[in-house]
Nucleic acid binder design. Structure first.
Length: 466
RNA sequence: UCCCCGAUAGUUCAGUUGGUAGAACGCCGGACUGUUAAUCCGUAUGUCGCUGGUUCGAGUCCAGCUCGGGGAGCCA
């Protein structure tokens, strides 16, 4: 007699004939007047529910079993048997049904066994993990994050926890959320009438981080191979299917490495985690392929097999200028690529993910390494069909004089970056890294198109519920 | 932030030129069946997002607002 997960029984871990108990929730109940009821029980351990067969000779059959509806929580005890019916290999022949909690009004229980729109589910984010689709997303998301940690561990990278609160306002990646303990109704002022942040908790202005990169660089310039995996915050007023105000980012940083090393690492990492999902979550992926995105499995299989295409920005511009497609935004060397351009390159020209490299320096950040041509920097973006930029990275400028010049061009005070500059003053090394948007990865893998559905509780402009 | 679209039963949706509010599924009741969000029959569904306007009369037309979706920008 043991406590089993639904996955244990479905996978045959529990031997036939053994008595086991399962804790879980009812998805459906079907009654047969032959004198039995069938319960589909799920507990999150795998996609499929386990079928429990309940005979009407059970003492609480009339009083309890017949009142079970979708969402009720139960403990089923009984013998694991090979199923007499079609559709499942094993089932549990119940000898005992215990109820933890009933659904107080089945008519208004927000989660019916029938289909719901993904937008509706977002309004009941506290109950949506009970659905097939969000449960599957949660398991794939977990598999991806475990695989990421496993990959970097096997490759000899250290996981570095970079700060979430930061006093550095030139991280440069976007608008920041202010963090303060000041009384907004009664702000302390300096003599010239400005807010006196010396009175604030940290004695200076502080924000939520928009990237762990600069901190990660310090550890890479000592421990050689590191990565961060943590939450990131952007106060941009972005209302799209691929932006969140709070999202998770994976940022590896490698010392003694150049742009090609970073691109190779990105390709190897993506292939590793895609293979992990295919191997570990075939049940959930089959559901996505059936109900969400027909191509999602073959897409991953292809990406594991094929080499990623690498392309220089300059060549991409030529391709876009010479192709038949008319774009809304004109293409010229020096312009930042628009969504329509990136989509064309990934979806039409390459037909798969493409690594774009060596962008004009004027459209990229100050820390990216200036190439010998003096016009471009060693930056790269991994563009995925349907999603766009999934990874953005660069070789970092390790030459102090060039870095200082670039900061001046972009109106960044070198004194504010004194500790970042120290890395270049004391034993500088070439190094490179990138940032992977974790939710974009989950979205790409599952085919679930809106990023708000691949994170449990999405935060976006005017939206911070639950 | 900009452009386009939408909001009607628990859910998914229909609702004609402005004239008494509809279906399916779910719920509930019954029938049937080792059943597979099963099938069949029946009952009950409602602040038509909010506020105002036009009209004899508004779910329908107009304005404002709120919320949601898609696209763009910003980016991961």
């Amino acid at each position: 007699m043991s406590l089993a997960s639904v996955a244990d029984i479905i996978k045959g871990v529990i031997p036939v004939g053994e008595i086991a108990s399962v804790n879980g929730w009812v998805r459906t109940r079907r009654d047969s007047k032959a004198g039995i009821s069938f319960l589909a029980i799920y507990d999150g351990s795998c996609f499929d529910p386990i079928q429990a067969v309940i005979e009407n000779t059970l003492e609480n059959y009339q009083s309890d079993v017949l009142s079970l509806t979708a969402g009720c929580s139960v403990k089923i005890t009984g013998k694991v048997v090979e199923s007499m019916g079609k559709g499942q290999s094993f089932e549990i022949q119940a000898t005992k049904v215990e109820i933890y909690g009933l659904v107080e009004d089945p008519d208004t229980y927000p989660m019916s066994a029938k289909r719901h729109s993904i937008e509706y589910l977002r309004e009941v984010a506290h109950l949506r993990p009970r659905t097939n689709i969000i449960g599957a997303v949660a398991r794939v998301r977990n598999t991806l994050s475990q695989a990421i940690h496993r990959f970097y561990n096997e490759e000899g990278y250290l996981w570095v926890s970079t700060p979430i609160l930061t006093g550095s306002d030139c991280e440069g990646a976007g608008e920041m959320f202010r963090v303060s303990t000041l009384d907004f109704e009664n702000l302390p002022l300096t003599d010239d009438g400005k807010v006196d942040f010396n009175e604030d908790f940290f004695g200076k202005e502080t924000f939520l981080t928009v990237s762990g990169q600069l901190n990660a660089e310090t550890y890479a310039c000592a421990l050689s191979k590191v990565y961060t995996f943590g939450p990131t915050f952007r106060a941009e007023n972005s209302n799209t299917t691929r932006h969140l105000a709070e999202f998770w980012m994976v940022e590896p940083e490698i010392a003694f490495a150049d742009l090609a090393d970073a691109a190779n690492l990105a390709e190897k990492m993506l292939k590793y985690v895609f293979a992990a999902v295919l191997a570990e979550r075939p049940d959930d992926m089959a559901f996505f392929a059936q109900r969400v995105d027909k191509e999602c499995i073959t897409r991953l299989e292809n990406m594991v097999e094929r080499d990623f295409v690498r392309m220089d920005y300059t060549d991409a511009i030529e391709i876009l200028k010479n192709c038949d497609k008319k774009f809304d935004f004109p293409v010229e060397w020096g312009v930042d690529l628009q969504s329509e351009h990136e989509r064309y390159l990934a979806e039409v020209h390459v037909g798969g993910p493409v690594i774009l490299q060596n962008y004009p320096k004027d459209i990229k950040a100050f820390y990216m390494r200036l190439n010998d041509d003096g016009k471009t920097v060693a930056a790269m973006d991994v563009l995925a069909p349907g999603i766009g930029e999934i990874i953005g990275g660069a070789q970092r400028e390790e030459r102090l004089d060039v870095l200082d010049r670039r900061m001046k061009e972009m109106n960044i005070e070198p004194e504010d970056m004194w500790w970042y500059r120290d890395l270049r003053r004391y034993g500088t090394v070439p190094h490179a890294g990138f940032g992977l948007g974790f939710e974009r990865l989950v979205s790409y893998v599952t085919g679930v198109q809106n990023i708000r559905d691949v994170i449990p509780f999405p935060r976006a402009p005017r939206s911070a519920n639950f």
